[in-house]
């Protein structure tokens, strides 16, 4: 394609947009709207799964020891624990240390603890897992192994609910994927029909072009360019709106004691924003492809 055909094609793009501005606006808005929905799902999903990952990284298994365990038995227990596969750092928390921690946590209700005759809290080992080892399927057998060691009263890992939650998140991801595909398909369908309308208003022009020797590529390229631009603009609008809403949300919800205190809410990564733009352009391209295919073949 040389300079003349290229400039002629861009001239036609301009002409098309100026003769049917509302159809082009409608396509852009449709794409923007669907990308906004998809982007929202992506934003929620990435934040929640980041959060879960950070929680998972911090999972600790707490093994409570029998009362009055002599120091020698305790050391050998710790050695055995350390040999278990997946166990990382082990920290001993004595009965006194446990009580001190409790007092610190309840500093406004200290009177409740003052009445206690003796320390009811057990000593424990707090076991961290080796980095990158925190899969659920490996955690259960480890806990079982620890439970079977002598002098261990009980084993607990506080974040057991996390498992339920991450199952829910896996489901959420699947659901959003399906919804995303449906949205994209619907948008392609809507765009196809809008582009068909444009083609219909131009059918005389297109037929004449073909009769005077224009190739399909010459005839079709402006429509592809238009919808690629519309897809790109739709993506920009969606990312812009999403970012605006995100900033608004952040400024409103800054209370650190919320469940989200462990990490900040992050916006979509640059890659994800780029992917949204790419999806927009893909929708536009595919819409043109479908409508042109139907329109130009007799």
């Amino acid at each position: 394609m040389n300079l003349t055909t290229r400039s002629s094609i861009f001239q036609r793009v301009r002409r098309n947009v100026s003769t049917t501005p509302y159809l082009h606006l409608a396509t852009t808005a449709t794409i923007a709207f669907s990308l906004l929905i998809i982007g929202t799902f992506a934003l929620v999903y990435t934040n929640i799964s980041d959060l879960i990952r950070s929680w998972q990284d911090n999972i600790r298994v707490v093994a409570y020891l029998s009362d009055g365990l002599p120091e020698g038995r305790r050391t050998s227990l710790q050695q055995r624990l350390a040999k278990l596969y997946g166990v990382g750092e082990i920290r001993y928390v004595s009965k006194d240390a446990a009580m001190d921690r409790l007092k610190r946590q309840m500093k406004h209700r200290l009177s409740l603890l003052e009445g206690l005759q003796e320390n009811p809290l057990p000593a424990s080992f707090e076991i961290r897992l080796v980095q990158g080892w925190q899969g659920w399927e490996r955690l259960d057998p480890l806990v079982d192994q620890i439970k079977q060691l002598p002098d261990i009263e009980d084993v607990e890992y506080g974040q057991a609910w996390l498992r339920r939650f991450s199952q829910f998140i896996a489901f959420f991801r699947l659901a959003s994927l399906i919804i995303g595909v449906l949205i994209v398909a619907t948008t392609v369908f809507v765009c196809t029909n809008t582009i068909k309308l444009t083609l219909y208003t131009k059918r005389q022009e297109l037929e004449i072009m073909s009769l005077v020797g224009a190739t399909d590529a010459f005839i079709q390229t402006p429509f592809y360019i238009e919808s690629l631009i519309e897809g790109f603009l739709g993506g920009l609008i969606a990312v812009g709106l999403l970012f605006g809403t995100y900033r608004l949300f952040i400024s409103r919800v800054q209370s650190p004691h919320l469940l989200l205190s462990s990490g900040e809410i992050a916006f979509l990564s640059l890659t994800a924003c780029g992917a949204l733009l790419a999806v927009g352009m893909l929708i536009g391209w595919f819409g043109s492809y479908l409508s042109l295919k139907r329109f130009l073949r007799p």
Binding site: M1, T4, T5, S8, M209, V212, G213, A214, F218
Partner: peptide, 8 residues
């Protein structure tokens, strides 16, 4: 248009 299609 005719000449544009052939890229003159």
């Amino acid at each position: 248009l005719v000449l544009e299609t052939t890229g003159q």
